[in-house]
């Protein structure tokens, strides 16, 4: 079981970058502990900005820093970052075209029993609807490293969602994790069904493909970490031959990965698309694993839906 959460990897990459480039700056809204960014604030106090509990200020200040040549990474719980500061993301980042990286930590239902105020089941839909905003949900620590390194190199704004808890490795190592910016990774090949997942749902999707393979069903599992720009080519490549497509996401059933994939499939190669997501309701109380299990967002649940679709 992997014990290193993705947010720590982001901090590690930024520590390496900040040592070489004084324009790399991190901002937190009383969230440095939750963001695993305490080491950054300790080692690079001149490149760290605390704004207090003020998410609008967080994103506005980040945009101002970016406009003057800084490379800001703004950290805040995804639930607040994607809603409280939504207009700053829209106007100060995307519309004004500033190089701000918005890092939504403890995303989805990571905060478990803290309730709907702390869940971000709308962030994919909200952020993706903003022109010029990119949206990424890395699946594991290795892909998180590649993605963070890539984001340091470009000068456009982006929203990244990571979970709170360590997640199992989808890839064996950083070296074994293929990475081309904005290209999804096809984890398993299969001609019967395609399972396209994002973020923490990639690991169960991969395991579902393995369960199906054991039963003689070919499932293509895809790590769609790049929600926007969506990797349409890979969706079409894995969907052409299969009988049905499943999407899996830790998100509302509206406006997320499922909606986007269904749009692509219906335009290009119409077939059944089943969207596995959280309900359009406050989720049941529990930790992430309990919530996922309850709604069938696990390997067994995904495999079971796949078999039903193939009947």
């Amino acid at each position: 079981m992997n014990k290193i959460h993705n947010r720590k990897i982001i901090c590690d990459v930024l520590l390496e970058a900040a040592a070489k480039d004084r324009d790399v700056v991190a901002l937190c809204s009383d969230s440095r502990g939750s963001a695993s960014m305490t080491p950054f604030f300790e080692q690079f106090p001149e490149q760290a900005v605390e704004v207090g509990i003020a998410e609008q200020d967080l994103v506005g200040i980040a945009a101002g820093l970016a406009k003057c040549g800084k490379k800001p990474f703004a950290f805040s719980p995804a639930c607040f970052l994607s809603t409280r500061s939504y207009e700053q993301a829209k106007i100060d980042c995307a519309y004004s075209n500033t190089n701000v990286k918005l890092i939504g930590i403890s995303g989805g239902v990571s905060y478990g029993a803290l309730g709907m105020s702390h869940h971000s089941a709308q962030d994919i839909a909200a952020m993706s609807a903003i022109p010029n905003m990119r949206v990424y949900l890395p699946s594991d620590r290795h892909l998180t490293r590649h993605l963070t390194e890539a984001l340091l190199k470009d000068e456009k704004c982006a929203y990244v969602r990571t979970g709170r808890n360590p997640v199992e490795d989808v890839y064996e190592s950083v070296e074994a994790c293929p990475f081309t910016m904005d290209k999804a990774n096809v984890l398993t090949e299969g001609d019967d069904i395609a399972i396209i997942a994002t973020g923490e749902m990639v690991y169960p999707a991969l395991n579902a493909a393995k369960l199906l393979k054991a039963e003689g069903i070919g499932a293509a599992a895809v790590d769609m970490y790049c929600i926007k720009p969506l990797d349409v080519d890979t969706i079409l490549k894995v969907s052409q031959k299969v009988k049905a497509v499943i999407t899996v996401e830790e998100h509302s059933p509206f406006g997320g990965l499922g909606s986007m994939v269904a749009q692509v499939i219906s335009e290009n190669c119409p077939k059944k698309v089943k969207n596995l997501a959280l309900p359009d309701a406050p989720v049941i109380t529990g930790n992430s694993r309990e919530v996922f299990d309850h709604y069938g967002l696990n390997a067994e649940g995904i495999a079971s839906v796949a078999k039903e679709l193939l009947k």
Binding site: R22, V25, E46, Q47, V49, Q56, D57, V59, G60, I61, A62, A63, G64, L65, A66, K67, C68, G69, K70, P72, Q88, D92
Partner: peptide
């Protein structure tokens, strides 16, 4: 104003 704060902060940093 928040954006101006960010710009001024960058000025101080640099």
């Amino acid at each position: 104003l928040p954006v101006g704060v960010g710009m001024a902060l960058a000025g101080k940093m640099n």
